[in-house]
């Protein structure tokens, strides 16, 4: 309350407040205008797509089912969810273990290994992409889900984030558990992990969203259309049937709406995550 007051010293006049709300409303509308056009166009018929009018003459809800007959949209969506889900699961689990080791255990060489992790965080992913692909060719993992999941599932960033988080949990708690006879695993599983929940949630959300949208790696890895994750599938749709703007927009709408729902539900955790240190991208 006080900080709001202090940033603008003038008394909050009704006219100024209204102007502010009006301005923000207009800006918000500008932000969502592309989405409005997207939804309206997805309900048009093909000849109407080239019209200047935004509104379709009749709402053709049938465009949506038609998308499924043109491309395996649900398959794409399922691929994306499964791939991102596995990456998230592995990423959170291995990162939590590693972070526990880096933040709670004393062992020789620990800090050197951690600096190695830190150092690679600065590396552009592009440096690793080419040899990684050659490795995948050698292992015969090209065009497989495993080849998509594995390289994305281990990252220095997650370890770093969770380590920062675990450093903030008071050590006296695990000392107390140790006196009660708990082993390291018990301390990790019953003490540190439950207390790191906000950090885990943040990492999970960012990992899932990042991999749900990831494009470069699936694009080079996947050859079979049925195995495409959504972003690659959408691009494929655009290349193959790009003229069918109404269907394309229906597909885009169906890709964007789940994101909007996820965002609406998880908004608080997301914003806290960004502020706490999930500063990525």
């Amino acid at each position: 309350m006080s900080e709001t007051k202090s940033i603008s010293s003038k008394p909050p006049g009704a006219a100024r407040g209204l102007g502010l709300h009006g301005l923000l409303t207009l800006l918000s509308l500008g932000m969502i205008a592309p989405f409005v056009w997207m939804v309206l166009t997805s309900l048009k018929s093909l000849p109407e797509v080239g019209d200047a009018a935004w509104l379709p003459k009749h709402f053709l809800w049938g465009n949506y089912p038609e998308v499924f007959s043109v491309i395996p949209f649900l398959r794409f969506m399922a691929n994306s969810v499964v791939i991102a889900g596995w990456v998230t699961l592995l990423q959170v689990f291995t990162s939590a273990l590693a972070a526990f080791s880096f933040s709670r255990l004393q062992w020789p060489g620990r800090d050197r290994v951690f600096f190695l992790y830190l150092g690679t965080m600065m590396l552009p992913g592009l440096v690793m992409v080419i040899p990684n692909f050659q490795l995948m060719v050698r292992f015969g993992l090209v065009d497989s889900y495993l080849g998509l999941v594995l390289p994305a599932a281990f990252g220095a960033f997650g370890t770093f984030l969770l380590r920062q988080f675990m450093l903030g949990i008071p050590r006296s708690l695990d000392e107390a558990a140790e006196i009660d006879g708990a082993g390291k695993w018990r301390i990790f599983w019953d003490v540190v992990l439950p207390l790191s929940r906000p950090g885990l949630v943040t990492l999970a959300i960012f990992t899932f969203m990042g991999n749900f949208q990831s494009f470069f790696w699936p694009l080079v890895m996947m050859k079979t259309v049925d195995k495409f994750p959504l972003p690659v599938g959408l691009l494929f749709f655009d290349f193959e049937h790009g003229q069918a703007t109404h269907l394309l927009m229906a597909a885009v709408t169906m890709s964007v709406v789940p994101l909007i729902v996820i965002f609406a539900v998880l908004q608080k955790q997301l914003i806290r995550g960004i502020q706490v240190g999930g500063v990525k991208g």
């Binding site: 273990l97 992790y117 440096v127 040899p131 990790f188």
Partner: peptide, 17 residues
Amino acid sequence: FLLPSLLGFCAFTLVPL
């Protein structure tokens, strides 16, 4: 504790690097 992460880190970061 570090092993699962370290294995993946070596295989998909250090070796490719």
